[in-house]
Design a protein around this nucleic acid. Structure first.
Lengths: 247, 247
DNA sequence: GTGGTTTTCGCCTATTGGTCGAAAACGTGG
DNA sequence: CCACGTTTTCGACCAATAGGCGAAAACCAC
């Protein structure tokens, strides 16, 4: 029978060297913090000063503390690298647990995705910098793969949620938002379509203001904002919805 | 500065009682294994024989071993409760890490969703049984909430992926599939629409065979199967896709 | 064969998304 | 001050998807 261990205080009392008691593991939290810079997303990385992997770049994070859950922990560790108030959205990506994802002793990591609006440019410590995701430096451990997972998650959610609120400034024109989406998605985006889709879904609302016209002339653009500042799934998204309900 | 600990072999050498070395935690894997039984989904649970929470019902799972990642681990533990060959799909749900989700010493859990087709009726140990999700017994720890998370994930994915392949038999009629979807989603489903949507997406293909007609007469139904036995996202699902590409 | 039952298929409509081009509203330079 | 380029906005049109409904098809039982 299995599960005998459950509820036992200590199955094994041998001390497994410096790695902690057998069957327990250090648990880390990591954050893929993304921000649109110019025409591409960038990720927040810090450079390791010492072994292992000295000189390589790591995702922000740290060890899970005894009195916090993983989300509280990642927020605590993030606060050491950026102003938490600038991180507009945080969600869990998943667990990375390959026994050989780093040197012994083994570490388990729960990864998160964090998003920072373009108009925020938080100060960062000396060892920390934004790196374009299309030109990542040498990353430590599996942090490159985790970064790609985070970017994939962002791209997927841009199309069926209002997650753009966490990348955009509080107010913006449709053109600015188009550039933002194009940078995040990695392909051109139609401003016409973007505006229609997002307003029809109710995620974008006009403020009524008109932006000062750009440097090269042209018709001044209307100012919009996201109707909600928390994550919401907005796609109809459900073929086979309950009969009689609107799409 | 943070992250000093990273790379240090042992930050603290004090032994934190029976809970393992300070800063390390036992890591469990848990599985929400669902199967459509009759008109509602059921979840595989086993009844705890001893404290803590003796008599309550738990999700299958167990402790993460030193040489396996969480997915390998959950498969290994599941094999003690059901024939793994009957579990058609496994995916990660997320981490549950509330410091008070169970009695001390603290345990972290990575939860998975597992799906078993209706035509499989795997033998289970004496302490283990299927329970309708609308009539859950008293569950241990946070396993009730985790079960709900698993069910939510299944319902969401039914509408925009081919995940039904993991619930349905290898071959089936549209009516059987409609009943399956209705049970999983908890509301009526139109057979007309189900067939049209799933075939247009290419997830359902007719085998060419005709099922023996049912007990009450009626036109014999065509037999279908899923075109693919692995998970694939099938919804167009991307407003704002690259220009010039088909929807 | 007649009636009841179940499945299947063809129309019709509504909604969503994509493309295109015209009109609106600005600045600039002659 | 007026023609021109530029950018934004809006409407028209088209394609694809999804839902609803009812007729036709194919079976069983009597």
């Amino acid at each position: 029978m299995a599960h005998r261990w459950y509820g036992l205080r200590s199955l094994s009392v041998e001390t497994a060297g410096a790695g902690g008691e057998a069957g327990t593991y250090a648990h880390d939290v990591l954050a893929v913090v993304l921000r649109i810079t110019g025409a591409v997303p960038s990720v927040l990385l810090w450079q390791r000063a010492r072994e292992p992997q000295a000189g390589r770049w790591s995702l922000p994070g740290g060890r899970l503390g005894p009195d916090e859950d993983v989300e509280a922990s990642v927020r605590r560790h993030l606060a050491e690298k950026v102003d938490l108030a600038e991180v507009a959205h945080v969600e869990q990506l998943g667990v990375f647990s390959d026994p050989h994802r780093g040197p012994a002793p083994r570490r388990i990591a729960t990864a998160f995705l964090g998003l920072v609006p373009t108009d925020a440019d938080p100060a960062v410590p000396d060892d920390t910098a934004w790196h374009r995701v299309d030109r990542l430096p040498e990353t430590a451990f599996d942090h490159g793969a985790i970064t790609r997972d985070g970017l994939d998650r962002l791209r997927a959610k841009l199309s069926y949620t209002n997650i753009g609120f966490a990348l955009a400034p509080a107010e913006f024109t449709v053109s600015e938002l188009r550039d933002l989406y194009a940078a995040a998605l990695g392909h051109r985006v139609s401003a016409t379509n973007l505006q229609r889709v997002l307003t029809r879904r109710g995620v974008l609302v006009p403020t009524g203001e008109i932006a000062a016209s750009g440097p090269a002339g042209g018709r001044p653009a209307a100012v919009f904002r996201y109707s909600e500042r928390g994550l919401r799934v907005t796609d109809p998204f459900a073929a086979l919805r309950p009969p009689g309900e609107p799409g």
